[in-house]
């Protein structure tokens, strides 16, 4: 049922492990370089390369059947959509002027509902003009 190809031999596993160690060392060294706003994209790019090696060689995804690769691709797409929509929302709120109100700190809330009416007198005083018209 696999897509074909021989399972990775010891040498292929060793090469993949060496590549993973090299990428991890590069990522560690780059964390001390002053990359400015590129620090996160560069670190994530290295992480994606490492994940691809683990998936393709160690997890043998490259020789799995089409149905398995489809399941993995669908999961990858859904993960990407989830993160992209959440980040897209937060990152563009200021640009399109729909910033939601910040939550008020605890203790600063103005009492609403029945407790407010008790302190401000009868609720009838704030009744709209239409309320009296409905009474007989």
């Amino acid at each position: 049922m696999t897509a074909g190809g021989r399972p990775p031999g010891g040498q292929a596993l060793l090469v993949a492990f060496g590549a993973l160690l090299a990428l991890a060392a590069a990522s560690f060294a780059l964390s001390y370089a002053h990359l400015g706003r590129f620090v996160t994209p560069v670190a994530l790019a290295v992480a994606f390369a490492k994940a691809a090696i683990v998936l393709a060689v160690f997890m043998e995804l490259s020789r799995e059947s089409a149905s398995i690769r489809l399941a993995v691709a669908a999961a990858g797409l859904l993960v990407a959509l989830l993160i992209a929509f959440v980040v897209g929302d937060v990152a563009t709120r200021d640009a399109i002027g729909v910033t939601p109100p910040s939550p008020e700190p605890l203790g600063a809330r103005v009492p609403v509902g029945p407790s407010r009416r008790l302190t401000e007198g009868p609720a009838k005083t704030s009744a709209g003009p239409g309320e009296g018209a409905m009474r007989p």
């Binding site: 990522s27 780059l30 964390s31 620090v39 670190a43 992480a47």
Partner: peptide, 8 residues
Amino acid sequence: WPLFYLTG
């Protein structure tokens, strides 16, 4: 690892 240790 990068998100919590490397991307300062």
